[in-house]
Amino acid sequence: MSALYRILKYAAILLWSAFVIAPFLWALTTSFKTANGITGGPTYIPWLQYQPSLEGWRLLFRSGGGGIQIGGPYLDSLIVTISASLISLVLGTLAAYGLSRFTFRAGFVRNADITFFFISQRIMPPVVLAIPFFLMLQFLGLLDTKFGLIIVYIALLMPIAVWVMVDFFNTVPRELDESAMLDGCSPFETFWRVILPNSKPGLVVAGLFCLIFGWNDFFFAFTLTFTQTQLLPVAIVALNSSVTPWWSLSAAALVSVAPLVAVAFVLESYLSRGNLAGAIR
């Protein structure tokens, strides 16, 4: 491998890293500004170029004084997202295994069509679903509750879990199932004892996707709640008044991404282990 290739490779990696990190650095420096620090044109270095202030951060943890308290919404977001993701993952994994290993036929409907049916649930623009979901939760008496949001999120997240897991199970060799069956395992035992333990990377990816999409949903969290239940994106957007507060929204962006970055580290370590698993098999 030539030196030039290595240089190009690292240059590409560093360039992309810079692109990825730029908005965060900008958000970081902006989060310490005030209106005066912004209207003077773009500046980057505190003290040297602008007088830093903690106001943007304070607004996130203050109530009644022009700020929001993101503690409660943070917790609500965690509860709703994690519950919905877990349920979606369980149901989606089961369905995906079924779709991957057995043949379904009903009229013109085949496995691929059922899989597509799951995924197609994500095609509909959320805008239209707002009122139907509103009426449904109204009928169930679940508007403005975490439980209601969990139900809606399951419909949003399960398709993702099904899609990732179908693809994943398709790459797991069928010989594994067959040898387990020969050993006298029932289909469910095969799934539980043999396939699932070998599917950690897939499960992690699917679970992470569910977490990400759930955590970052704004629209349903916004339309299906009133005053009792508030999820994090909705609480943060409450800062976006006539003046767009560059400072506190920047701080909020950094705060809201934090837990998922932690998840990214976990994910990466599973990916590396997935690599090992692939080698063994």
Binding site: V20, I21, P23, W26, I212, N216, F218, W246, A253, L271
Partner: peptide, 23 residues
């Protein structure tokens, strides 16, 4: 780098859009 490259996906689009608009 793997972790770094994953991070943008974890951000809330509606909030990051505001950041991008300021950029």
């Amino acid at each position: 780098f793997r972790v770094l490259f994953l991070i943008p996906m974890m951000t809330t689009p509606v909030i990051m859009a505001v950041i991008w608009r300021t950029m």
